[in-house]
Amino acid sequence: MAEKKPRILQNNRDMMWSMIPLVLICLIIAGIASRCEFSPGGPSSGPVPHFDVNASLKYDAGVLGFPVRDPAVPEDWQPNSGSRGVAGSNGGGDVTTVGYITSKGRYLQLSQSEATEEALVPWVAGDLRSPTGVAPVAGDRWVEYAEEGSEPIWVTDFGDVRVLIKGSGTTEEFTELATAVDAAQPLTP
Rank of each mutant, 00 (worst) to 15 (best):
E147H: 11
V95G: 01
G99V: 07
V143C: 01
E148G: 01
A138C: 01
V163R: 00
V155Q: 05
E117V: 07
V121K: 01
G92D: 13
K104E: 14
I153H: 06
R162H: 15
A135M: 05
E144C: 00
V73G: 12
T96V: 13
V161Q: 10
G126W: 03
Q112V: 01
V143R: 07
L128N: 14
R162P: 07
G91C: 07
R129Y: 07
R129L: 06
A55K: 11
F66G: 06
G139Y: 10
P67V: 02
A138P: 04
V124N: 03
V63E: 12
T116H: 09
D52E: 10
G62I: 00
V53Q: 12
W123R: 06
N54G: 12
V163I: 13
P74Q: 01
W142D: 02
S56V: 08
G91V: 09
G93S: 11
S150I: 00
P79M: 15
G139H: 08
D157Y: 06
R69Y: 00
V137S: 12
A61M: 01
A87Y: 04
P152K: 00
S130W: 00
T102H: 07
S89R: 06
D157H: 01
S130A: 14
D60C: 00
T116S: 15
G126D: 04
L64T: 13
S130F: 11
T102E: 09
W123V: 06
R162C: 09
Q78T: 14
P79W: 12
E118H: 10
T132P: 10
T102F: 01
R84S: 15
P71F: 13
